[in-house]
């Protein structure tokens, strides 16, 4: 009797362990299915001509040309947004140190509202950005796209930077203060240097998030066939290149969507791997 119960206990454990393995495999399999679909469709479409030419005869109808406009446009948009968000995030992350805000209610509030902002969907940032642009009399442009994307990645970037800045050892900061350095000097010369690996990772991930987002640039950045020339002109982007060109009835145009999706996925993959390598390499000289 006792032995039977023991057997049942073990059977149950085995059963659920099997289910868990299956679930983990399912998640791996869905990632594999996505990457396979992108590769199978994207690889035949990808060529040097594809990534080095502008679309000819309009991105929706034109059968010739490539996706250079979207690649360059996306780099501009994500680069600009990351730069803008980095400046703001740096200020907030440094402010959340004990020297400034301390463990106060206000610091708690800032962190909490950033966590809440993180949940706001990108389409709402797009709608908000568009409202602001109408207010300022701007049309869909590089500038508008940069602002909407910067707002989108602000919470992710700030919280990630806040976390690494908090990890800097207090003793190290105290030695800096003991030598007579001000808070600003300590922040820039000690804290930032110590937090550099974490900050670089955060910046890379924020860039990856910005380059992949479509809903927030849909109304704020617009789309165009040409290369960006001005902050105030519409600009193309890779996610929208996928979105617009996948929906056309022309196979040649769809090829451009497949290529754009592959390029986008590759960029995100490279960023993900690079951030991991970076963390490993840069943490060698950090005192903990």
């Amino acid at each position: 009797m006792k032995r039977l119960r023991l057997r049942r206990k073990q059977l149950e454990e085995r059963f659920f362990k099997g289910l868990m393995l299956l679930a983990t495999l399912l998640i791996g399999a869905s990632l594999a299915a996505i990457l396979m679909t992108i590769l199978i469709k994207g690889l035949p479409a990808l060529s040097w001509a594809m990534v080095s030419h502008l679309p000819k005869g309009g991105y929706y109808f034109g059968q010739e040309g490539g996706i250079l406009n979207a690649i360059v446009g996306s780099l501009y948009l994500a680069g600009g947004a990351t730069l803008l968000a980095f400046g703001l995030s740096l200020a907030v992350a440094l402010f959340l140190q004990t020297e400034y805000a301390g463990p106060t209610r206000f610091a708690w509030l800032v962190r909490f509202s950033l966590d809440v902002l993180w949940g706001v969907p990108s389409i709402v940032y797009g709608a908000f950005g568009f409202t602001i642009m109408v207010l300022l009399g701007l049309q869909a442009s590089l500038l508008g796209g940069i602002i909407a994307l910067a707002l989108l990645i602000l919470p992710v970037l700030t919280r990630a930077m806040d976390e690494v800045v908090q990890l800097v050892s207090p003793e190290l900061k105290e030695s800096s203060y003991a030598l007579g350095a001000t808070r600003l000097e300590t922040a820039l010369k000690v804290v930032l240097r110590q937090a550099l690996p974490g900050i670089s990772t955060a910046v890379l991930l924020a860039f990856g998030r910005a380059i992949g987002d479509a809903a927030s640039v849909l109304f704020t950045a617009g789309y165009t066939d040409s290369l960006p020339t001005s902050l105030l002109r519409p600009i193309a982007s890779l996610p929208l290149a996928v979105f617009f060109q996948l929906g056309t009835p022309f196979p040649r145009v769809q090829q451009r969507a497949f290529a754009a999706a592959l390029v986008l996925t590759l960029i995100v993959l490279v960023i993900s791997v690079a951030s991991r390598l970076l963390t490993r390499r840069l943490t060698r000289h950090i005192t903990r």
């Binding site: 998640i27 869905s30 990632l31 299915a33 996505i34 679909t37 992108i38 469709k41 991930l205 990856g208 998030r209 380059i211 992949g212 987002d213 479509a214 809903a215 996610p239 929208l240 996928v242 979105f243 996948l246 969507a257 497949f258 999706a261 986008l264 996925t265 995100v268 993959l269 960023i271 993900s272």
Partner: peptide, 13 residues
């Protein structure tokens, strides 16, 4: 990585 894949890529899949 799954978290980092852009939503249009999910859409295309």
């Amino acid at each position: 990585l799954l978290a980092g894949i852009p939503s249009v890529v999910y859409g295309m899949w």
